[in-house]
Structures are given as C-alpha cells and as structure tokens.
Amino acid sequence: MKTDKHSNDGPLEARSVIGFYHVDLQYKDQKALSNVHFSVDNGEFLCLTGPSGAGKSSILRLIAMDAFPTKGEVMVRGMLASKMNRRRIPQLRREIGFVFQDFRLLADRSVEDNIAFAQLVVGVPRAAIMKNVMRVLTQVGLYGKRQRKPHELSGGEQQRIAIARAMVNSPKILLADEPTGNLDPVTAQEIIDLLFRINDGGTCVVFSTHDHQIVKTFGQRVIVIQDGRIASDVKRRVPVDRTASLADQMYRGTDAATAVDNIPATARQETVHA
C-alpha cells in the first residue's frame, strides 16, 4: 500500500489552500477532533464523509475560522488560525462560500435579492451586483425564477440559489455541509454535478456528507472521519463514470457501494490511519 501525499506527517504544502496540521479540537466537555492532519490543494475537490457527529462539521468550522484548534494549526489561504486577527475573519469569509443542508435563504426576499444581499453587505457597487447576480443565476440555471420567493421553489432549486449566493463573491473555496441532505437522490445528483462544474472552474470544493451511497460514486479524494479522527484518506485515480448517475444506479438496483469496491485496488491509493 502506497502512502498518499495527503496523509503524510510532513510540513504543510506551500500550494495548499487548506492545511490541517495535527489538529485537536475540544468543545467544552467533548473532544471533537484529534490529530487531524491533511491538506487540500488549490482547485481540488474533497469529500468529507463519516457518520453524523464524527467531526465533519467541526472541520468545516475550523476552515471558516468559526472555531479554532485547541492543538495544532489550521491554515486557510495562507492565513494561520493561531495568528488570525479576529478583525480579519470577514476578509477570509469573503474568500469562502458556504452551502448548508437547510439552504439558509432569507424567506422574505426574492431569489435575486438573496444573492444580491451577499454582495451588498461586503460593499460591491450596485451596478456590479446586478451583473454578478445575473451571472451566477445563469450558472445555476435559475435566471428565469429570479423574482420568486424561496418558498415558491423546490428544495433542489433553493439549494441551487444557495450555491449561487455562495459563488457570487467568487470565493476560492466552497464549503458544502451536507448540501444534499434534504434532497431526493435525483436532485442530490444535480447538486453534486453543479458542485463538480464549480470545481472545474477552479474553485476548491469541500463537500461533506454522511451518505455512503453518494461517496461511492465519487472519483475524487475522500476523507473518512470517524470519532474525530481521519480513518482513511483516499484519492482514486480512475474517476467513476459520472454519466451513470447515482440515481440511475440506485433505481437500477445496483449497489453503488459494491460498484466502487469493485474498482481494482491498483487504481486506488489508500491509507488507513489507526
């Protein structure tokens, strides 16, 4: 078994956009993460998976500097958590887009106002806001519904609006915390495809899910978190055929998990941390 570059104990890579260096995170009476060590390259697509409560969200919070490591160091876009001035956190947040399971849209505002809001509060001039909103709405294919209120849209559409909002400030990193959690498999696949497209555009995407089925269709790097530790950090060389969507596989009764497990071991790089 070869050692994967993502899981070695060496110094953080210079080209990394995110780096965790032997991170412990302790909440009041509970240890959330222990000795988490990995880095993410610019433009990489990373999937975090593991059971609920394993520590996926804690990792995302550390990346957003919404939490700070008890031990170790977190680096995001060259900024170190230990040296982070709290006044500069807003600056960092402008380089990170967020997507959540529950969409978190403002119910009393139209789709375009929801997206414009993200630009307004960071001081983008009005003319540029209009242009950017149009751009991202076209990107997610909902320009025609820009006047609607969120509750008039389906779950998948709401999530696409949330993604559009996350992307409107052109972030370098997109954090998606269980973005498919509330969606049916077909819609979930559409959202994942949208995230892939965003990743193709050069944005680093960190996607977290507890859904084993979704992970098995991935050709990307997958980090499995268990009890606050990295259980495995795998990068598959052979991408899974994305044309056969998860939903297709499921509805055909194929066990997607088995499909992935059938990929020859030589095509995988895998390290299992004890």
Binding site: R94, R104, A118, V121
Partner: peptide, 17 residues
Amino acid sequence: ARVIQIQKLVGATNGFI
C-alpha cells in the same frame, strides 16, 4: 438572526452588521 448569520458568513464586518 438569520440575516446576521448570513452577513457573517459572506464576510460583512462586525462594524457593518
């Protein structure tokens, strides 16, 4: 609360919020 939360997420400064 939701508006404030989103403002923080997208990087509005505390002063602005």
